[in-house]
């Protein structure tokens, strides 16, 4: 079985996000970019499936700007076998919407015929939480979102999902799309020799046009603003003072 893992280049999760003064978006110039943390978990899971003999090949794919090839090299250094870059934007500030990403991925799936697509549940930039479900819909496949445990067994997969109030386990027919949640695994760090080796692994470059997918956004960004700041509060010196303040406010 082949596993396809879509990965997205996003602002590093440790970087403080700054909204541009003109309200046109978030400042991404000269900001550290990394692989979306949820996608790292998906890459890790795919590699573990290969190591367990359940998958033969792990193919990473990224859709966006040309610089996303760095993200793909990270996936290759972690252990993916090869990569596909689909260039769909010139400007790092242009986000390709999940619907267009899902359509391109569906074309890649047609070509590659994977038995499983493992993706992150959401990207930490647009927080849309949609690509996996959309891909599954377009393909007419089953879906298992927010996975915290994935077991592949022949023509089905048993997936435990993180849902409000607890966990749900479902059994889905293969091929399937699984979107992964935080507790599925802890992604490995790429070792230096593997980073060197990754430079020699194959990385195909395509464009959105090669797949005949129109990536024109359906949503127009009217403005981007900083969230309302909370007014500074006060420090209290003791538990008694805290209790008094809360009683005064009618909070308890």
């Amino acid at each position: 079985m082949k596993v396809l893992v879509p990965v997205k280049r996003v602002i590093d999760y440790n970087v403080k996000v700054r909204v541009k003064a003109d309200g046109s978006g978030v400042d991404l110039a000269n900001v550290k970019m990394s692989m979306n943390p949820f996608d790292e978990i998906a890459v890790e899971e795919a590699i573990r499936l290969k190591e367990a003999g359940k998958a033969e090949e792990v193919v990473a794919v990224s859709i966006g700007v040309k610089q996303a090839q760095e993200t793909l090299r990270t996936a290759l250094a972690m252990g993916a076998d090869r990569a596909i870059l689909v260039v769909a934007a010139d400007d790092v500030h242009q986000d390709i919407e999940p619907l267009a990403v899902a359509k391109i991925l569906a074309k890649v799936v047609e070509e590659e015929q994977p038995g499983l697509v493992l993706c992150g549940k959401q990207a930490i930039d647009n927080d849309m939480n949609a690509t996996g479900q959309m891909l599954s819909a377009i393909l007419g496949w089953s879906q298992a979102t927010f996975a915290s445990e994935v077991g592949i067994d022949g023509d089905s997969a048993v997936v435990t999902r993180e849902v409000d109030g607890g966990l749900q386990t479902i059994k889905v027919k293969m091929p399937t799309v699984v979107s992964v949640d935080l507790r599925l695994n802890e992604p490995r760090y790429a070792s230096l020799p593997n980073i060197m080796k990754a430079k020699k692994k194959p990385l195909d470059e395509k464009t959105a046009a090669d797949y005949g997918v129109d990536v024109t956004p359906r949503l127009t960004v009217v403005k981007t603003s900083a969230p309302a700041e909370r007014a500074a509060g006060e420090m209290v010196g003791s538990v008694d003072e805290l209790v008094a303040k809360l009683k005064e406010k009618g909070a308890v």
Binding site: I11, K16, V17, V19, V26, I124, D125, N126, D127, R218, L219, T220, V221, V222, K223, T224, S225, A226, P227
Partner: peptide, 16 residues
């Protein structure tokens, strides 16, 4: 809608 973990609020107009 909030984006970037609520560090920015985006106003979007849908053409769908």
């Amino acid at each position: 809608r909030p984006i970037y973990a609520g560090n920015a609020i985006q106003t979007v107009k849908s053409g769908d």
